[in-house]
Amino acid sequence: MIRTELPSENGETQQLVFALTVEEAAKVARVSRSTIYLALRSGTLTARKAGRRTIICPSDLQRFIDGLPLFPGRASEGGE
């Protein structure tokens, strides 16, 4: 499960988030913004619009990551 907490500006406290911007989703998932936009265009990641802002629910980001192919090699449980 993806942790839906992001570090604050000073790095001390964390806050629970219910929606992520494209930039935040990329940071949380440890992928590039381009990867997020490609996934949105291909339909493998779902987003919503709030005015002009594109927002991604953490559960949608989790489904996207769960759907990524496993690294070839020795199989591991839970993708770890």
Rank of each mutant, 00 (worst) to 15 (best):
A26F: 13
R30S: 10
E5H: 04
P72L: 14
G78V: 15
L45V: 14
G67L: 10
L20M: 13
L40W: 02
T46H: 01
I55Q: 00
I55S: 00
G79Y: 10
T44G: 02
R3C: 06
T54F: 04
R3F: 10
L70F: 11
E77M: 14
G51R: 03
A25L: 12
S76Y: 04
T44D: 05
A19K: 02
R3D: 08
S76E: 09
R41V: 11
G79V: 15
R30F: 14
R48F: 12
I56H: 00
R33P: 00
S42W: 03
S76N: 01
R48P: 00
F64Q: 05
T13F: 13
A47C: 09
R33F: 10
V31E: 01
L38K: 07
G11W: 10
L16T: 11
S8N: 04
C57A: 13
L45M: 10
S59V: 15
A29T: 08
E9I: 15
D60H: 10
D66R: 04
C57S: 07
G11E: 07
R74Y: 11
A39R: 03
R3K: 04
T44E: 06
E77F: 14
L68M: 12
G73K: 02
R63W: 09
S8H: 08
S42H: 03
T44S: 06
L70N: 02
P58I: 15
L16Q: 02
V31F: 06
